[in-house]
Simulated scan of single mutants.
Amino acid sequence: MKTRRAFLQNITMASAGLPFLTINASSLGNIYKSDDKVLRVALLGLGGYAQRVAESIQSCKRVKITGLISGTPDKLKTWSAKYNVPEKSCYNYQNFDSIKDNPEVDAVYVITPNSLHREFTIRAAKAGKHVICEKPMAINVKEGEEMIAACKKANVKLLIGYRMHFEPHTLEVIRMRNEGDFGQIKFFQGLCGFRIGDPAQWRLSKALAGGGSLMDIGIYAINGCRYMVGEEPIWVTAQETKTDPVKFKEGVDETIQFQFGFKSGAVASCLSTYNMNNLDRFFLNGEKGFAEMLPSTGYGPIKGKTNKGEINAPVVVHQTEQMDQMAGILFDGKKPVVPVDGEEGLKDLKIIEAIYKAVATGKKVSL
């Protein structure tokens, strides 16, 4: 989906004509002081999303890019010049471990295909650096557990790139739910998907992605269901539909519908697909009210309404807000409303494995 992968053209233009206020992170109730410690980050894997992150960091109050890691020499040269990173702080995948001797790097942000998350997270931890890892944090539960253990052993923190956990409209819905505005939650629907393009890309490789749509866009519905309902699911059922077995080979899912049940009695119905556009919607229904987010997880601007009217929350650049907030987590011990640690990432991996098991067996799987 072009809107999902393309860069934000201009956040001011994007919000023109909308009843939202476009502000930076410092206007969200976080008072940034001139003496706040700045998080110095090395970006690992200089692909399309890393470029979005890098551009967003330029507006951060507490984060700057001080290192680069890539297997492509030309990218290192171009990015080094663009972001003013010295050659001594540029690494390839072979000499990356020597980053342990670089005092100018506090954390490594792993932005590679899913199957490489484990390796580079563990190597970064052994080098004594905090780790920020893109989601899903790994391709299976075992790898996720190994990543958490490695970071604990090295006494570094592991954070997962859950940008929506800092998004103002999302946080407003969570606040309203916590305060009982919707009453007892009964139902959640999460629709996430787009028509994927290049059939040769890594997202359609079982070896690199660990699956298909569920490992990419589907995780938004899984994670979103958990933070919107405010509970962990206790069972899952799921069904897969595949219309193009050439493009979506064995082990690469095209479309999966999955359903959750919760201890409270709430239920959820979700869709993850690589074969349909116009799917970016969350709907939460309770005894006293509802919340709808449309779009719900795209790069912005997020829009939402409840039974009380439109959600007039600030519009932010998600990655800018995420990185500044993560600086606060790493240096100041701040606790986000919704966790972004390795344990949070592991919960999603356990659900993903259960969904794939439900697809394979046709049975309800307990969580």
Rank of each mutant, 00 (worst) to 15 (best):
V110M: 04
K129A: 07
K249T: 14
G362N: 02
I217W: 08
P19I: 12
F20C: 08
F188P: 03
G193P: 11
K249S: 13
V252R: 02
G47I: 07
L204T: 08
L28R: 13
T243K: 13
N307V: 06
G298W: 08
A221R: 03
C60N: 13
V236T: 14
S213R: 14
I355S: 01
A50G: 00
Q201A: 11
I23C: 15
T22G: 01
F248D: 05
T255F: 02
T78V: 11
I311R: 03
P136G: 04
M215K: 13
V316Y: 01
K305E: 13
A14F: 07
N178H: 12
C90P: 06
E143V: 06
Y83D: 07
M164T: 14
T273N: 09
C192R: 10
I65S: 05
K334W: 05
I219V: 15
K334C: 12
E321S: 13
S70Q: 05
L271W: 08
I132A: 08
P314W: 00
V359W: 01
A154S: 13
K334A: 14
F282D: 06
Q201H: 12
K75F: 12
C60P: 08
N24I: 08
K247W: 06
R226C: 04
G144H: 03
R177I: 08
L271G: 01
C151V: 05
G224N: 06
A358Y: 01
N30K: 12
E119K: 14
T112P: 04
F20A: 10
D280T: 03
N178F: 08
A207D: 15
K364P: 04
R52L: 11
K33D: 13
E167Q: 14
G265L: 05
N275E: 07
I132N: 05
A16N: 03
G128Y: 00
L349H: 11
Q239D: 08
Y109T: 04
